[in-house]
């Protein structure tokens, strides 16, 4: 069993940020459990470890509620990737990203990558609504079967209790266009003082997803993990070169302490 704890040493950190009710927990749940279920509002932040090939990726699923804002920078400290999530049917949720959440990423790694994700695409986009998760080939057959009933229910019965949109049977008004997200991505780079040309292009870093149907969810996480891989490798190399990482961690810790005591 000590193997477990050894295995669980995370190599890289990914943080999910965004206003409440945009579906951060659902996105992660869709990706890790391959299911969509009612979640309850996240308390504080929830820490997950995801085995991705030989690597361990730690994911912080944070609460979007203002109440827990104070811990945001703690969750982001040393992050290699930040997923900024909004709700495509809610313009305010994109605005909140800029107003409240962008500043939390100050503690992330200097080479941190940013993804802008519009969730709940199934509410506005027929493609996303009709999307069947099984197409994207989850490894396990039984899981596929578990998966199927859901979209079927959706098409067979237009009023599943879970979603107000399908209640009306119509497609909700889309409030945030992909261009808005792209523009926001540009502003992130500017905020970070990054050069647009040398950074990852917006087309690659802006996604529209549906945690409900699974649309684009795997694409998002896999793409992100592919991109942070270099950061993992670099960290591993540093590890091999010298045991400085521990020192670095210590220094990081003492910095924090100094900061909290001075204010």
């Amino acid at each position: 069993m000590p193997e477990v704890s050894k295995m669980k040493k995370p190599d890289v950190k990914v943080v999910l940020l965004g206003d409440m009710n945009v579906g951060k927990t659902s996105l992660l749940h869709r990706y890790t459990e391959r299911k969509f279920k009612d979640t309850i509002s996240t308390v504080g932040g929830a820490f997950f470890l995801k085995q991705w090939g030989p690597y361990n990726i730690s994911i912080w699923d944070t609460a979007g509620r203002e109440q827990f804002h104070g811990l945001g920078s703690m969750y982001c400290r040393g992050a290699a990737a930040v997923i900024l999530t909004y709700d495509v049917t809610n313009w305010q949720s994109l605005a909140e990203l800029e107003e409240r959440f962008l500043s939390l990423t100050d503690t992330a790694n200097h080479d941190c990558i940013y993804a802008v994700v519009g969730n709940k695409a199934d509410l506005t986009d027929p493609n996303a609504q009709l999307y069947q998760d099984s197409n994207v080939a989850p490894e396990d057959q039984t899981e596929c079967e578990e998966e199927r009933p859901e979209p079927q229910v959706l098409s067979a019965c237009p009023t599943p209790p879970a979603s107000p949109a399908s209640l009306s049977g119509s497609v909700l008004h889309k409030q945030v266009a992909p261009e808005d997200a792209v523009a926001f991505y540009g502003r992130i780079l500017r905020y970070k003082g990054l050069d647009e040309k040398s950074s990852l292009p917006a087309e690659k870093m802006c996604f529209e997803t549906s945690a409900k149907t699974g649309y684009n969810v795997d694409t998002l996480f896999e793409a992100l993990f592919d991109l942070v891989l270099p950061s993992i490798l670099r960290k591993r190399n540093e590890n091999q070169e010298s045991p400085t990482v521990d020192l670095e961690e210590c220094r990081g810790a003492s910095n924090k302490r100094a900061r909290s005591s001075c204010c």
Partner: peptide, 9 residues
């Protein structure tokens, strides 16, 4: 949502 480790004030 029981899978993760929660950290909250």
């Amino acid at each position: 949502f029981q899978a993760g480790e929660i950290w909250t004030p």
